[in-house]
C-alpha cells in the first residue's frame, strides 16, 4: 500500500513538473527560433558560394535533458504494447531544437551570417542502466561563416 502511494506520488510529481517544464521550454524554443531565424543553419557539407572573403569557425551547442517519472512509466507500458513512444518524442525534439539554438546563439555572438554542415550527436547518458534517471544528451555542431572584418 505504501509502495503504491509512493509510486502514485512520483507519477503525479513527474507529470506535474515534467509537463510544466516542457510547456515552458517549448514556449522559449519557439520564441528564440523566431529571433535566430536571421541566421540559417544548413546541412550542406560544402560552404555556400560567397562573394566576400570570410572566416569559418566551429560552433557547438550542447544540451542534456532528463526524462521524468511519468514519461518513463509511459515508455515502460509502451515496451509491452509497442507503438510510438510519444513521451520520448517531445523529449528528443526539445533536445535537438535546444542544441541547434545554443549553436546558433554561439554563431550569432561571433557575428556569423550562416552555419553550414550542421550535424548531431545524440547520447543516452544512463545507457539503459536500471535504477538510474534516464537522460539524453544532444550535441549540435557546424561551421559558422563569419564575414572577414578586413573585407
Amino acid at each position: 500500500m505504501i509502495d503504491l502511494g509512493v509510486f502514485l506520488t512520483l507519477l503525479a510529481l513527474g507529470y506535474g513538473f515534467g509537463r510544466y517544464a516542457e510547456l515552458k521550454h517549448y514556449k522559449s524554443i519557439i520564441q528564440r527560433e523566431k529571433e535566430l531565424n536571421i541566421l540559417p543553419a544548413i546541412a550542406a557539407r560544402t560552404p555556400p558560394m560567397i562573394s566576400k572573403a570570410c572566416d569559418c569557425n566551429l560552433v557547438t551547442g550542447n544540451v542534456v535533458i532528463s526524462v521524468d517519472y511519468f514519461k518513463r512509466f509511459i515508455s515502460v507500458l509502451r515496451n509491452i504494447v509497442g507503438g510510438r513512444i510519444t513521451s520520448y518524442e517531445t523529449l528528443i525534439d526539445r533536445a535537438r531544437r535546444e542544441a541547434i539554438l545554443r549553436m546558433k546563439q554561439q554563431a550569432h555572438e561571433m557575428g556569423a551570417k550562416q552555419v553550414f554542415n550542421i550535424k548531431f550527436e545524440t547520447a543516452s547518458i544512463y545507457k539503459g542502466k536500471r535504477q538510474q534517471v534516464g537522460s539524453v544528451e544532444v550535441l549540435a555542431y557546424g561551421t559558422a561563416i563569419i564575414p572577414s572584418q578586413g573585407g
Binding site: 527560433e33 531565424n37 544548413i42 558560394m49 562573394s51
Partner: peptide, 19 residues
C-alpha cells in the same frame, strides 16, 4: 586561428530556415 576561404565569383544562392 579560424580557417579562411577566398571569395568566389558567383554568389546567387540564398539560404534561409523556414519556420
Amino acid at each position: 586561428g579560424p580557417l579562411s576561404f577566398p571569395a568566389r565569383e558567383d554568389s546567387k544562392l540564398e539560404y534561409s530556415n523556414p519556420e
